[in-house]
């Protein structure tokens, strides 16, 4: 009898609280969107991309979420996936809004799709003419096509555009760079081993090459002087010395490449800064 009483009391308690006792759906559209926005604003782009994927799975018409998804992938350096999602949420890339078009162009540059980028820039789209000039010059600079980048900037009809002016100033610095000549360096190394490397700025490597080739040559000379042309000692050192001599010439070319690339990278870093701010 007592048990029945307790059971009835419990059933009544449950019935009364049924209205309040519901479970939360943490993964509904609103909560997922809130959390995705929070992650996006906290610069946790990799995690934000996952949340925006969930949001767009529930509601694929949310344009802001789609834009932020693409941005999140770009900022996580997942450029191919970003392009894929951009194309998924924009059926026709030529009729995209200005923001989407800028995002697309940025992604093409970062993903090094320069041929596709040039086609897109030349086509009719929402990009302003200043944007087209800017991105075209950036892509030319990234491929070390300096002269074309400078001529792109010359076409700018809007001198008020601050970023283009900055880009112009940086590109003008490129003229002042003192590149080392590959043929000259190779010729120097062919005449006196190691001097080509010294000329290209790697003086310690140059001196060491001179030492190695010099010692190998000297040992070969000593061997031949002692036992004549049949000296094994002489032939071994001659072979080694020849290898080091030719290797040094090849290495000189690489050293000049490395030095010139270093100069280019200094300019490219400054251009990247403008590109990221644009």
């Amino acid at each position: 009898m007592k048990f029945k009483y307790y059971l009835t009391a419990f059933a009544l308690f449950v019935l009364i609280n049924l209205r309040v006792g519901y479970s939360q759906d943490l993964y509904n559209l609103n909560n997922s969107l809130k959390y995705a926005d929070y992650l996006y604003k906290s610069h946790e782009f990799n995690l934000a991309a996952n949340e925006y994927e969930r949001v767009l799975f529930i509601d694929s018409t949310n344009n802001l979420a789609a834009f932020r998804l693409v941005e999140s992938y770009r900022k996580s350096a997942l450029y191919s996936i970003a392009i894929n999602r951009l194309e998924k949420y924009n059926v026709n890339i030529n009729t995209m809004s200005h923001d989407w078009a800028k995002e697309y162009v940025r992604l093409l540059i970062l993903n090094q799709n320069y041929a596709l980028l040039n086609n897109y820039i030349q086509s009719e789209n929402a990009l302003a003419s200043a944007d087209k000039i800017f991105y075209s010059a950036i892509s030319d600079a990234y491929t070390y096509n300096w002269d074309k980048a400078k001529s792109d900037i010359k076409n700018n009809s809007n001198p008020q555009n601050k970023s283009i002016q900055e880009l112009k100033n940086i590109l003008s610095q490129q003229d002042k760079l003192k590149y080392k000549s590959v043929p000259l360096a190779i010729a120097l190394s062919a005449i006196v081993p190691g001097t080509g490397k010294i000329y290209s700025g790697f003086w310690k490597d140059g001196l060491f090459s001179l030492l190695v080739v010099g010692v190998s040559g000297l040992q070969a000379y000593r061997g031949f002087q002692k036992n004549g042309i049949s000296s094994k000692y002489g032939w071994i050192y001659l072979t080694m010395g020849t290898g080091f001599y030719i290797g040094n010439i090849y290495g000189t070319g690489k050293a000049v490449n490395k030095r010139n690339s270093g100069l280019n990278h200094k300019i490219i870093h400054q251009i990247e800064d403008i590109f990221n701010r644009y």
């Binding site: 790697f202 310690k204 490597d205 060491f208 090459s209 190695v212 290898g243 080091f244 030719i246 290797g247 040094n248 090849y250 290495g251 690489k254």
Partner: peptide, 15 residues
């Protein structure tokens, strides 16, 4: 091999 000879001369920990 030529590339290796160049590398071998650079393997000196000086730079």
């Amino acid at each position: 091999l030529i590339n290796f000879f160049d590398r071998f001369t650079r393997c000196n920990s000086m730079s």
